[in-house]
């Protein structure tokens, strides 16, 4: 079942009372990406993998993947932005320490043509 079928609009009789949401974590299905006018883009060549963007993102839209650090230990790496959820607030762009140094950008911020 795709999201469209899953969230087909229901009649009032078919709803649980009082707007209670019975499915835990279904906010993940809610597309906030359409709110965006600007979007962050990753430049991995400049990224120092500090994960600050992931920490600050209010939508949990920074996508991580598992990998191995220089010390040989497993850790997470920033790979991409999930544009289904990213609402383009720009927090990640502002908080990125590489961006703050001002020489190069690890996260760019560009006009989004939706």
């Amino acid at each position: 079942m795709n999201l469209k079928q899953k969230y087909a609009l229901k009649k009032w009789q078919d709803l649980p009372l009082g707007g209670v949401i019975l499915e835990a974590g279904n906010a993940a299905d809610y597309e906030t990406g359409t709110w965006r006018t600007w979007k962050p883009v990753t430049h991995r060549e400049n990224c120092i993998q500090c994960l600050a963007c992931w920490e600050y993102c209010p939508e949990d839209a920074i996508v991580l993947e598992n990998g191995t650090g220089p010390d040989g230990k497993p850790r997470k790496f920033v790979v991409d932005v999930n544009y289904y959820h990213c609402k383009g607030c720009g927090l990640c762009v502002r908080e990125c320490p590489v961006n703050k140094e001002g020489v190069v950008q690890a996260l760019g911020f560009v006009r989004d043509e939706v």
């Binding site: 009032w12 009789q13 709803l15 009372l17 009082g18 707007g19 209670v20 019975l22 835990a24």
Partner: peptide, 28 residues
Amino acid sequence: YHPILDTKNPVTWGALDLQDYYIEHKRG
């Protein structure tokens, strides 16, 4: 009715409700 303290069946009460469902909830 779908109590919050039933931690095995987590639910959300009081979520934002916009043009697509607010009026259906009011009808109920």
